[in-house]
Nucleic acid binder design. Structure first.
Lengths: 237, 237
DNA sequence: GAAATAGTGTCTGTCAGACATTATATA
DNA sequence: TATATAATGTCTGACAGACACTATTTC
C-alpha cells in the first residue's frame, strides 16, 4: 500500500487509471429524441461516431464538469445551458488501453443551437442508434431514461425548445420526450404549477387557419435552473 | 494530444489522476440514520474518521463497484446486499496529493450486521456529524438525500431491518428515514402494493400487553433488488 | 359560415389521509 | 375489565384525465 503522501499517484503499485469524460447531448429533431455524435479523431475506433468526450486535462480542468463542458465546446461547438452528471463507467475491460474511468454528463439542447455544418458532427435518433464504441450505447440509454424520468416532474424539456414557445409546441416536446400523449388540461395545469413560463404580452403565433397561440418565454430565474413539481406530469403513473 | 494507443496513460501530457472509491454506508441506530466512519490509516488526515474507501486496485478490481465492495469489506467488515453508485466527485483541489476522482457508492445495512467491536469503526448520526475530511460531508448529504428520495417509492428501507420484521416496525423505519410521520393506512396499502413482504404463517411478536403483530419476511426475489411503486409513499407531496 | 386549432369549464374516478371500529394480547 | 397496540373499514378532499364548450384565426 504505497503512494507517498503529497506525490502524484505512483505508476508502480497503482498504475495510472485512464480518466476521461463523455457527454450524452440530446436534442429534438423531427419530433424525436436524437443524440449528438462526433467522429473520433484517434484510435481506438478512429473515425467512428461516438459521444463527444476526451481526457481530463489536469492542468486545465478544475473538475470533471469543466472537462465535460470543454469537450462539448471543442468537439461539438456547443455551450449547453444544462449539463449535469449522469454516472460513471469504469473497469479494466471497457477500454483496450487499460483500466479506465469515464465520468459521463448529459445535456439537452435545442436543435437550432447545434452548429449547422460541422464536419464529423451528426445526430442519430435514439430509437435506431448505430453501434457505438466502448459502452457508449449503455450511456445513451441511461441518459435517455434519466431525461424521461426528470421530464415527468420538471421543466427539463424546455431546454429542447427555442427562446420562445407556445404551450401546444411545448406539449408536443414533452410528448416526444416521454413517448406518449399527455392530457391537455393536465399538462397546462402542470406548466402553470411549474411557473417557469411567462406570456409575452400581445405576442401570438399565426400559423394557419385557426386561433393563434400565445407565445411564452422562460422566466430569467429558470434559464439555468430546473423547476420541479412534487407529483409529476402524470403521463404515466 | 499524446497518449500512444494501447499504452497506459502517460504521466507527461496527462499526469496520472488519483482514482479512489468511497462508500457512504448508512444504518439505523436509536431510530435515527447514522453513517459508518472508519479511522484513516494514512495521511492525509491519518487517524481522522472518514468514509470507508481507498484506491482502485487495477490488478484486483474489475470495476469501481468491485473496488467499493472490497473497501467496504476491508475497512468496515461488511458485505452489503445493496451497493449502488451515488455520484463522482473530482477536481484539482479536493485532495492535496493532486487531481483526483472519487467514485462514491452508497449502501444501507441493518445495524445488527455491523461488526460489533471493530477498532476504528464507529457510527455518527447524520444530524450531528463531525467535520469530515475531503468532501466527505457533501457525499454523506448527497447519499442521505438519495436514500430519502428512493425510500418514498421503493422498498429500500427494508435493508435497514433484520430478516424478519413487523409492519409497525417497518413503518417506524420508514418514518426515521423520511423524518416525518406516515399515515398508517396509506403505508400499509403501499407495502401491499410493493409486494416485497410475505407473512410468516402463524408467527407473531408478543411484545407487551396488547395484540401481537404479524411477522413478515422479504420475498426471495427482492433480497438484492428493490421493489418500486409509481406514485410513492406520500409522506410528502 | 366552415374548418381548424387554442384555450377553458366542469364532471368523475382514483387515491392519500383522517377517523372510527374491531381484534387480541397482558395485567 | 382496563389498557395498549395491531389491523381494518369507511368517508372525504385533492387531483388527474375525459369531455364538452368557447375563442379566434383563415378561407
Amino acid at each position: 500500500m504505497a503512494l507517498k503522501p503529497s506525490s502524484p499517484a505512483s505508476t508502480t503499485e497503482f498504475p495510472a487509471v485512464i480518466c476521461t469524460v463523455d457527454v450524452v447531448l440530446l436534442t429534438l429533431k423531427d419530433q424525436a429524441l436524437h443524440v449528438v455524435l462526433v467522429d473520433r479523431d484517434r484510435p481506438p475506433f478512429a473515425g467512428v461516431p461516438a459521444l463527444p468526450g476526451g481526457f481530463v486535462h489536469v492542468q486545465e480542468d478544475a473538475t470533471a464538469w469543466h472537462a465535460a463542458a470543454r469537450a462539448l465546446q471543442e468537439k461539438a461547438g456547443i455551450v449547453s445551458p444544462y449539463l449535469e452528471q449522469l454516472a460513471t463507467w469504469s473497469g479494466a475491460k471497457r477500454d483496450s488501453r487499460g483500466w479506465s474511468v469515464s465520468i459521463v454528463y448529459y445535456a439537452v439542447v435545442a436543435f437550432e443551437l447545434l452548429p449547422a455544418d460541422r464536419p464529423g458532427l451528426r445526430t442519430a435518433p435514439i430509437d435506431s442508434l448505430p453501434s457505438l464504441p466502448f459502452d457508449h450505447g449503455e450511456m445513451v440509454a441511461t441518459a435517455v431514461a434519466r431525461v424521461r424520468t426528470k421530464s415527468q416532474y420538471s421543466s427539463l424539456p424546455i431546454y429542447l425548445c427555442g427562446e420562445r414557445v407556445t404551450l401546444p409546441q411545448l406539449q408536443a416536446v414533452y410528448e416526444a420526450v416521454l413517448g406518449e400523449p399527455i392530457n391537455k388540461v393536465s399538462f397546462r395545469r402542470k406548466i402553470e404549477e411549474l411557473g417557469m413560463l411567462e406570456p409575452i404580452a400581445g405576442e401570438t403565433t399565426m400559423a394557419g387557419a385557426h386561433r393563434p397561440a400565445q407565445v411564452y418565454q422562460l422566466r430569467p430565474q429558470y434559464r439555468r435552473k430546473l423547476s420541479v413539481v412534487p407529483r409529476g406530469i402524470n403521463a404515466l403513473g
